[in-house]
């Protein structure tokens, strides 16, 4: 049988050579709703896991462009209508008190706790997160295409800001797996943004 490499790049999209997992389907279900209402970016653990890191996760971090109350309400209603529930509450008022302060909320499938989506709103007051949200990298697994941060940004964020054992392992995985396409000049550029974030 022909041996295939782990990924290839096609029209600036990274294509991962693997089958979809149940975790992919979970994330895709949520993004299908979210994309109708807002821009987004999938960050952190799922970036490493979707590209091969052999570890589990219970939450998927999704950055979302900050919405006003009316637009968030439309999104919130759509999410609930599609059989998801929100940890923080069943009504707009309950959930909005988190969103308006820039605090994250979590969504899971009805009667499930795990996995869940950590819904993190982002605007210019969070410069590093805003930068990655507005500089996405497309990635595809089979017919599931989604947006992640630039790889170099994700690696540095894990190494410098998060820096836990799991994060350093994720970063090492990304550095090795994507060795052929990582660009040194991007590391230099993004490091400045991330160092600034750390000093905030």
């Amino acid at each position: 049988m022909e041996q295939k490499e782990g990924y290839f790049v096609e029209n600036n999209t990274i294509v991962i050579n693997r089958e979809l997992t149940e975790l992919d389907l979970f994330v895709r279900d949520f993004l299908d709703i979210l994309k109708k209402h807002s821009d987004y970016l999938v960050v952190s653990g799922f970036v490493s896991i979707s590209t091969g890191r052999a570890r589990g996760t219970e939450d998927i971090d999704v950055l979302v462009q900050k919405l006003d109350k009316e637009k968030f309400n439309e999104l919130f209603k759509d999410i609930l209508k599609n059989n998801w529930w929100c940890y923080q509450g069943d009504t707009l008022e309950e959930v909005w008190r988190y969103i308006e302060k820039g605090e994250s909320v979590r969504f899971a499938k009805q009667e499930e706790m795990f996995p869940n989506i950590e819904f993190i709103t982002v605007d210019k007051t969070k410069p590093a997160k805003y930068f990655e949200l507005t500089h996405p990298q497309k990635i595809r697994v089979k017919d599931f295409e989604f947006k992640i941060p630039p790889l170099e940004f994700e690696i540095l964020y894990k190494e410098i800001i998060l820096a836990g054992k799991k994060d350093l392992a994720d970063a090492r995985h990304l550095r090795i797996f994507f060795l052929d396409i990582l660009k040194e000049e991007r590391f230099k550029e993004y490091k400045l943004i991330i160092i600034k974030e750390k000093e905030r």
Binding site: K4, G6, Y7, N17, R18, E19, G52, I176
Partner: peptide
């Protein structure tokens, strides 16, 4: 593991 996966997608 990352090196193996990079070379051969069957490890997925």
């Amino acid at each position: 593991y990352a090196r193996k996966l990079k070379e051969n997608s069957k490890f997925f």
